[in-house]
Design a protein around this nucleic acid. Structure first.
Lengths: 111, 111
DNA sequence: GAATTTCATAAGCCATGACTTATGATTGAG
DNA sequence: CTCAATCATAAGTCATGGCTTATGAAATTC
């Protein structure tokens, strides 16, 4: 079924986003837009290689894209990368509709 | 901020659900309702202690509840356990509204 | 009450992953 | 051309986690 098709993707996304440091990098890219590795390293609490490794993991998971510019590499979020996780949640919404009222309210506020 | 309050919960939930075997147990409880450890062990592909350990992890994460009945333990899903993850996604919906159209459509179909 | 069923916990093994320092490759500056 | 800046990769260390088998605890059966 369609659910099984995304199984590996869901596992990979959950796993990638489960690390707090890596998720913080992802969240910062979400809030601040495109950033260089150096900018991301500041305030990350870990070394530059660690940040590069986290960015590589995020890239493999399809959550970020890179743009080389001279000797700098700019990273930005790839919103479509979250799609399998959204599908996963949507699937559960059919089981427990009441639990999604809150999210539904948020979504409707956007309209 | 409210986001930081749930940070640990999000990490724990992502981590708990990132293991395919454990997530399969959770999904099966979602589909089939309350099940005993023995029933969950069948078809899990791992030993009974492994299943018990996964259930303990799910319980700590707040994703399942147990009900002792004689020598059997029945487990069922705790839907509220997913709330921090839903909040996390709702937060991102403000950044990328277009990516939540699909989920929103699913939710509206329920009405 | 002895044996069996059902589940949880303990102990140990092994793979994975997150971090470090060291180094290389490429680009920009002086 | 030389040096500095920027990032990625390599190698190694250490902790964590998921699995196993072994065992214990509690409840039912005979």
């Amino acid at each position: 079924m369609k659910f099984a098709m995304h199984e590996f993707a869901v596992t990979q996304l959950m796993r990638t986003l489960s690390d707090p440091t890596r998720r913080a990098v992802f969240e910062r890219l979400s809030r601040e837009g495109e950033l260089t590795v150096g900018a991301l390293t500041e305030g990350a609490g870990v070394s530059q290689p660690a940040v590069s490794q986290h960015l590589a993991a995020l890239k493999i998971a399809g959550l970020v894209r890179e743009r080389r510019e001279g000797r700098r590499t700019h990273y930005r979020v790839e919103p479509a990368g979250l799609a399998p996780l959204i599908d996963w949640f949507a699937h559960y919404s059919t089981f427990w509709p009441e639990r999604f009222d809150q999210l539904e309210a948020v979504l409707k506020d956007m309209d």
